[in-house]
């Protein structure tokens, strides 16, 4: 199945709950609301025509231009995206599902946006979600064990946010 068909079958199933789609992109994707994510993922995994049983990657992308001069020309509003790359073992096709989130929950800095976890659908999501939480700062609701995975437990901040400030010192070892 190619990407327009997948998007069409998703729209037939969910109707207006598919927020938007972009089929002329290099990797065609649909955007869904975080509240619908688990349902959409279950459909993508279990529908016999789709059968997306491989979760390749979850990535968090932070859209923010720090330079106030460049910000109006940046071409995007500050926001955060969580991107799910899926592929299918029996049908050998790929698809992308995206979530668009505010950078901070209710614009309160430090309050992470919340996304439902898809660990119940794909076991691979376990570590990937931990990594996105660790580096990009997204809270996955329903994850069995959401801890930092790459950085140490007492690390402050989420490094892949654009406004992250590098530490000057860590446990007595100077930073630079």
């Amino acid at each position: 199945m190619n990407a327009p068909d997948i998007a069409a079958s998703l729209e037939a199933q969910f109707g207006p709950r598919i927020k938007s789609k972009k089929l002329d992109a290099i990797d065609p994707f649909v955007v869904v609301d975080p509240a619908d994510l688990v349902e959409v993922c279950r459909f993508l995994r279990d529908d016999p025509r789709l059968q997306f049983d491989l979760l390749n990657c979850i990535s968090g992308v932070d859209y923010l231009e720090l330079d106030p001069k460049k910000a109006p020309k940046a071409g995007y509003e500050p926001h955060l995206e969580v991107v799910y790359h899926l592929s299918s073992f029996p049908h050998k096709h790929r698809f992308v599902v995206k979530l668009i989130l505010p950078r901070w929950k209710e614009n309160k800095a430090g309050d992470m946006p919340v996304v439902p976890s898809v660990t119940s659908q794909w076991a691979a999501a376990d570590w990937h979600e931990r990594e996105v939480y660790d580096l990009s700062g997204v809270w996955f609701d329903g994850h069995p064990d959401l801890r930092r995975i790459l950085l140490s437990e007492d690390w402050a901040g989420h490094p892949l946010r654009k406004d992250y400030e590098f530490p000057l010192e860590y446990h007595g070892i100077r930073g630079r």
């Binding site: 790459l150 950085l151 490094p159 992250y164 590098f166 530490p167 070892i173 100077r174 930073g175 630079r176």
Partner: peptide, 15 residues
């Protein structure tokens, strides 16, 4: 990794 390595010790002689 000196410039952007937020997690890298800048030389093991610090340790």
């Amino acid at each position: 990794y000196y410039k952007y390595g937020y997690n890298v010790v800048k030389g093991v002689d610090l340790v």
